[in-house]
Every structure is written in structure tokens, then in C-alpha cells.
Design a protein around this nucleic acid. Structure first.
Lengths: 254, 254
DNA sequence: AGACTTTTAAATGTCAGACAATAAAAATAT
DNA sequence: ATATTTTTATTGTCTGACATTTAAAAGTCT
């Protein structure tokens, strides 16, 4: 493992970087045990708390796991897609909310990416994934569904569609785009009419996927994107108009 | 902020989660200063080192930054796309290498995603991005280029293509797919002939993007994917054959 | 008064040493 | 031989201290 120059910078950050580089470079194999905290402290010529801070940084990225006890220690973690999934979604969500990404920008990215999965999904989707899509469509057609539950079902539907491509790399990358949009979608109040249209489009997509017609699925996704943006635009316009009215009332009455 | 149940679990992890949830929920605004370590320690009823470990976890995810000095402390970080970029690439790279994702799977995902950017890029690319693509193509045509430098140029070319879509969400998500493939590409020895073909395809893509013909660009990307997979298959076959031969020799002579 | 310098205070960064909790291995007893 | 106890190595946490950094307050000189 590499040493640390005694330059002016967070020691714990430097140590974390040194260990992370070793993992990325493959010098540390999966499930390999790192030296104990005391040994690392000795090696890097720092105190144990400093080493611990460095290890916590790595643990935060799921790069290592720690175990107490006699044969315990820090071990290089196998980074599974499933584990990385949650982190990716959280980060993507924060990126969207903190950078004031417009609904249209996020929506465009989401459907562009999703269309790239459609042809593969049309080829490979399992019966199970198809059933999930149909189940979610049915759920979405229930008028009693709250807007939040409707959005959650929408995510589940699209996730099944993406998983149908049977490519973990695609599923992982898409997760960030699709799930991170949920907070934005939750800001929308879906009218019964707009739900009907979307359910109809979802059905068309599922039909296309079932019949193996990727091109048709892509076409439907284009329509769904247009419809989603239209609904969002209406919802935001209505909200803005309401704000305008209330401001006017305040101006008059206040 | 939420409290901590005194259950059996890493205190630092619990505290990190509590603070992270507050940030994600929007209770803590960008650039807002967290309470000092001493105050947090007092609030959560733990020692300062424990609080520090929690803060280091958050710092590792770029959720907070810390500043020394009188008015220093931990501040909620604006998570910029640029910052998240590096993390995303690292994680994606590790996911690929640790999960033994096949070249074909990664390649399929990469080009599927990239094709989703092509139509947008054909519409919106700037002259600067187009120039970058041409520059990288020229670089790739230099026979003196090492394989690694060739791959790096390839990444730069495709990155310019993706950035042409002028959608930060797309650029961010694509980064994971494109840059994470570089280590896999580096395993390939590119022959002069295969480089020629790829340079030619890159030129066709650039021409299509320049003339605003998204469909043609998508078509070219399909060809490029097929060519890339073919080159990789040949390279792996050659390597496997070499191994076979050397094994046979060992068997005979050893 | 205004500009420059010094001091002060608050915060993080780091260290040292200690004890608790845990879990596996070794030693012991049944 | 099996079950129980003891030992031991390691991480988790605490206490208390000092170093370093930074901005603001106080002081000083022109």
C-alpha cells in the first residue's frame, strides 16, 4: 500500500484514498482482510482514531465491512449491484433536487434512457416481469389510489420494463434516472383523465413488449414522454395560476 | 433532527443515517451549518470521536464539507454533477470488475445508453463539442498511440458526443457506463486494422451529428457496437488460444 | 478616523491511553 | 469426545488533551 506525504491535507482522507486506490487497482482482493487498525496506525504513523475515520469513509461507500471479535477486522466488500442501487438512487435524487433540474430535463433523460432498454426487453422479458407490468397497470387503474401510491406503482412498472432487458448494468444505471424522478412526479396531482391516458399507454407498451415488438414499444414510450410532459406542464401552470390568484387576492384584501 | 434508539448497532452509522435523512428530507438546507461536533455529541449523547466518524461517513459521500476555524464547522454540500461524476465512475468500475460482468453485457449497456443520446446530440451539439470529437478522431488515427491512450481518446470522443445532448442528467448517468468500460477496453490489444475501422465509424458518427441526422448516428452506433464486440471477441479468442498453447507446451515439456 | 497589527475565541484535526463488547480459538472440565 | 470456561485479538467507544486554522474582536499606530 502507498504511503502518505506529510502534506497539508486531511490525514483520514489521504489514508482512505490510499486504501481505496489499492482496492480499485486490485491489490486488495475481495474478502481480503485489511491490517488491523493498530497496524494501519503504525504503518501510516497516525493515531488509531484517524485510521478509524478513514475506514468509516470507506465503509460509507460499502467498500469495506468490519467485524468485531478475535478474527475480526476490516474486509474488502464485494460491491453488489443491489447494494449500489440504493446509493445511486439517493445520490441521483439529491442531484436533481439540489441542482434545480427542471422537470423536462429529468423527464427527457429518463425516457431517452428507458427507450434504450425497450428493444432488449421486448426480446428477453420473462413472463414474470410481464405479469408485474400488468399487475401495476391494474393497480394504476384503481381510482382510490393516492397520487403517491400511483407514482410508486409507475416506478415499479418501469422498473420491471427495464429489468426485462436482463442487463444488470442497464438496470443499475436506469435506477438513478427513474427512481430519482419520483419526488418530481409526486409534486403533480394526477387527474382521473390523465391517469386513464397513462394507463392506456402503459398497456400499449406492455402489449408491444409481450409481442416482441421493440420498435412499437419505443414509439409508445415517445408518446408516454410527451403525455407526461404535458400533464406536468398543465399541473405547474395550474399551480402557478393559483399562486397568482392568491397573490392578487392578498393584494386586494390585505 | 431525529434521535437515536440505543439499540445494538454502530452508533456512528446510526448518527450518519439520521443526519443524511435530514438532508435528503430537506430539513437541512444547502450551505446550512450543522451544530458543532461538541453540540452533536451532546445531543446524541455520544463522544466526539463517534460524532466525527459519522461526519466522515457523510463527507465520503460529499454530503457535507468541513471547514476549520472560528466560523468553521460542517456544512451541507451542494452536490454538483461534477463531484458526483467521479464517485459514480469509481462505483461503476468496481461493480463491473467485482461482479465479473462480461464484456458483452457492459458493451451492450454502454451503446444502448449512448444511442439514446445521439438524437438529442444531433440537435443540440455545440461547435466546440463537434471540434472535440474531430480532434479525438485525429488523435486516434496516429499509429504511435498506445492502446491505453487510444482508449482514453475513445472515452473523450464518446463523452463529447453524450455532452452534446446538453442534458446533465444524461451525461451523469452515461458516465458510469462509458468510463467504467475503460478498464475492460484496456484489456484489448487494438490492431491497426481495427483502429482504422473504428476511426472510420467515429467519423461517420460525427458527420451524422454535424448534419443533425440523429437516425444515422444511431445506425452508426449500432455498427460501432457490433465492431467493438467483434474486436473484443477476437482479442479474447486469441488470448485464450495462446493460453491453450502454453498449457499444452507445459504439459509436454514440464 | 482609518488602516494595520495583534490577540482571542471557536471550531476542526489529531493524539494518547483506557475500557467495553464481541467472537473465535485455546484450554479445561465433565 | 463433548461441553464449558478462559484467553486473546480486534473493533467500538469514551475521556481528555493539545495542535491548527480561521475569522472576528481588540488594540495600536499614523
Amino acid at each position: 500500500m502507498k504511503i502518505d506525504p506529510n502534506s497539508s491535507a486531511n490525514l483520514s482522507a489521504q489514508i482512505a484514498k490510499a486504501i481505496r486506490d489499492s482496492i480499485v487497482a486490485g491489490d486488495l482482493i475481495i474478502n481480503e482482510r485489511l491490517p488491523s487498525e493498530a497496524e494501519l496506525a503504525d504503518y501510516f504513523q497516525v493515531s488509531r482514531p484517524t485510521v478509524r475515520e478513514a475506514l468509516k469513509r470507506l465503509a460509507a461507500q460499502s467498500l469495506i465491512r468490519t467485524q468485531r471479535g478475535a478474527t475480526g477486522g476490516a474486509f474488502v466488500n464485494r460491491l453488489s449491484f443491489q447494494e449500489a442501487y440504493a446509493d445511486h438512487v439517493t445520490t441521483s435524487t439529491l442531484l436533481l433536487s439540489m441542482n434545480e433540474v427542471s422537470f423536462d430535463t429529468a423527464c427527457e433523460a429518463r425516457y431517452a434512457l428507458e427507450r434504450s432498454c425497450a428493444p432488449l426487453s421486448a426480446e428477453r422479458r420473462t413472463a414474470d416481469q410481464l405479469a408485474t407490468m400488468r399487475t401495476e397497470i391494474f393497480r394504476q387503474s384503481q381510482p382510490s389510489l393516492t397520487d403517491e401510491a400511483y407514482c410508486a406503482s409507475d416506478v415499479a412498472f418501469h422498473r420491471a420494463l427495464v429489468d426485462g432487458a436482463a442487463n444488470p448494468v442497464l438496470s443499475y444505471q436506469l435506477a438513478g434516472a427513474i427512481e430519482a424522478m419520483q419526488p418530481l412526479m409526486n409534486m403533480i396531482t394526477f387527474t382521473m383523465r390523465s391517469r386513464e391516458i397513462m394507463v392506456c399507454l402503459h398497456s400499449s407498451i406492455t402489449d408491444a413488449i409481450e409481442s416482441g415488438d421493440g420498435d412499437a414499444a419505443v414509439e409508445c414510450l415517445h408518446n408516454l414522454e410527451a403525455e407526461t410532459r404535458k400533464i406536468a406542464a398543465d399541473a405547474f401552470a395550474a399551480r402557478s395560476a393559483a399562486r397568482q390568484r392568491s397573490a392578487t387576492i392578498t393584494k386586494i384584501t390585505g
